[in-house]
Structures are given as structure tokens and as C-alpha cells.
Design a binder for these strands. Structure first.
Lengths: 179, 179
DNA sequence: TGCGCCATGTAACATGTTACATGATTAT
DNA sequence: ATAATCATGTAACATGTTACATGGCGCA
């Protein structure tokens, strides 16, 4: 369900096409929700059928036509209700941790290589959070409170990834004592 | 794919039924992978078709018959290979963060209620990590290194959830300055 | 009398991924 | 030449959830 409302939120900022939505997902929400273009086009059709959006076809010269999706009042109301729902812990599906569960089949250096690989991914992600582009995104919020919330989202990602990076380093150190 | 190998790992400890597997998932792996019984039975059929397991039907009196799944040599080899794969960041799908993205539609007290609700979930989860049962689980590892790894898994969960809990409290404090 | 444990499964649905499919324009 | 950008979509598949279906035993 979250995808639907993530999309509605974007459409409530400004009407856009599936192609535009994909770009927004890749550039801003990438860190806590992802979607492929197949999923986005499918979901746009559903949103329209449910009356949460309407479509406007914009003819363009030279480039293909664009279908601009506008949120309806019903869509805005549905979004408001969903945003107020009680949250739960996201169901974790952490491949690395499953691998480590059964990693006693590998040598210690092999396990360390895997952990280092994961640490490298974490560092890349953290570097992205630090870029100017990501900081500016939060400044596009429409009210001071929205800007505060968007910065809090970045803070969440940074904190969690940093905690995992510390854990990776701790775990490698401990492993070196297990030959 | 992870589910398949999470199951193979359990079957390599001791042959068991789908019912047993479900209990193991609920009691030990629950924190970083989950599965419903439908999924487990479906996957067991697949594992058998791929020759990674064999089945032994154990007649029982009074209770329904049991199908014990045994891992094969091919299964053990497939597990070893999978465990050595290079890890990636798990794709995050964090409903709370999507909600917060669009939460400017709510009043500040409403947002704080949601954050507090999430903080409550985190505390419950952290309390589980601290119980004796969870500590003992790690002690069932078959080698010192496996016990070390299983404790590291618990450490990962604890660290990440604690980081999120700190973030929740920080964010609530900051929000109280935004009326 | 009703609930939880034991133990299996199927069916329908929702969600997410990958590959297939088209086709013009612009930059290297 | 060839790749990227713009812009749409479908088909097949993989994965995950919920509801339906059965049936005996032991406990409160």
C-alpha cells in the first residue's frame, strides 16, 4: 500500500507523469522506498480507477506525449487518512544476516571479505547522504515543519547506516580472534 | 532466494518438517527474516524438485503424519555457494518514513503520537533481544565461531533498533519546537 | 464448550522484478 | 556509431499475504 501513497504525495506537490515519478523515486525517496517503472505505471492505472487521480494528456512535439496525473480531492483525503495510520516495524529481510547465520561453512578470511563488502556498500550510501544535493532536497519542503521532517528522514538513514557500519567493524575485529 | 537458503541452513542442522521450520523462523530468525507457513510449504516442494532435499514420511499415532525433509549433498553445496555471495544493502521499505514525508498534513501532536507509537514498537523489540531465551539461542551454535556469529546477529539488531529509538526521541524533541 | 497445539496443504490476491517492445532526439 | 534521455506500456515470473480447508487431542 505504501507505494500508492508515496506516489499520491508526489502528485499532491505537482501533477506529473509516470516517467517523472520514477525520477523522483530515484532521486529523493530512493533511500526508504523504491519502485520500478512497471510498478509505477501499473499503480497509476489503479489510482485512476479508484478515482484518486485524473489524467490529462499533454501532446508534445518531438518527444512522446505525456500523461499528467492530477490528484483529486478524494485522493487528498485518502492520503491524509493513510498518513495518520499507526506505524509498525518494517519487516526486515536482511540477506547478509541470513548469510552470516550459516557462514560457519566458510573460512574466517572469506567471512571477513563479505563483511568488508557490505561495509563498503554502507560507506557509499552514507557518502550519498552527505552530498549537497541530498541536503538541498530537504530545503524544498513547503513549510518549516515539512523541511524539518525531510531533514529528519535523512537523519534516520544516516543514523541507521552509521550504526550498521560500526557493527561491521566491531564484528570484523572480533572475527580476527576466531581463526 | 534468501528464504530457500535460510530453510536449507536449518535443515542442515537437523532434518525437520514444514511445521518445525515455521517454529524456528518464529523463534530465532524472526528478527531478520520471516515466512508464513504457506510460503514454507511451497518452498519445500521447490527444494525437493531441485534435488536439494529429500523427504521421509514419518507415521505418527494420534497426531498427523510428519514429512521430514533432509538436505542432500547437492543442497549442502548450493548453500555453501550462496553463503559466499557478495552482499548488497537490503532494499528499504519503510512505511513510517513515507508517512513522515507527507505528514505535514497532520497537526504536530498527531505526528508525535505516530512517532511515539513507533518508538513503542522499537522498545518492545529491544526488550525481546534482551531476554534470556534470545541469549541462549546463540549458545546453541555448533562451534565457537558460529556462536560468535549468532551473537553478532543479535548485536546487529540491537544496534540498529537502538539507533532508531534515539532518532525517534531526537525527532520528537525537535518537533515540539514546531507548533 | 472453546481454545491451542499438532500437521498438512490450496487458492486467491497483492506486490515486486526482469525482460520484451517501440521510436525519435541529442550528445560524445 | 552508440549511448542516454524522453515516454509509454505489457508479459512472465518471483515472492509474500490472507483466507479457506481438515481433524484429533488435551486442557481449562
Amino acid at each position: 500500500m505504501s507505494l500508492k501513497y508515496a506516489m499520491l504525495g508526489f502528485l499532491d506537490m505537482i501533477p506529473m507523469s509516470g516517467y517523472d515519478l520514477k525520477k523522483f523515486f530515484d532521486s529523493s525517496v530512493r533511500f526508504y522506498w523504491t519502485a520500478t517503472h512497471s510498478q509505477i505505471y501499473r499503480t497509476l492505472t489503479e489510482l485512476e480507477q479508484e478515482g484518486l487521480t485524473t489524467v490529462e494528456v499533454v501532446p508534445q512535439t518531438d518527444v512522446p506525449n505525456k500523461k499528467l496525473y492530477h490528484i483529486t480531492d478524494k485522493g487528498r483525503e485518502a492520503l491524509r487518512v493513510w498518513v495518520g495510520e499507526m506505524p509498525e516495524l518494517p519487516p526486515l529481510r536482511h540477506k547478509l544476516l541470513v548469510q552470516l547465520s550459516w557462514a560457519d561453512r566458510l573460512t574466517t578470511p572469506e567471512i571477513i571479505i563479505i563483511l568488508k563488502g557490505y561495509g563498503h556498500c554502507l560507506q557509499e550510501r552514507l557518502a550519498l547522504y552527505g552530498t549537497a544535493g541530498q541536503r538541498e532536497l530537504a530545503e524544498r519542503g513547503r513549510t518549516p515543519r515539512e523541511r524539518y521532517l525531510w531533514n529528519a528522514l535523512r537523519d534516520n538513514g544516516e543514523s541507521v547506516y552509521r550504526a550498521e557500519l560500526d557493527w561491521v567493524n566491531r564484528t570484523i575485529e572480533g572475527l580476527e580472534a576466531h581463526p
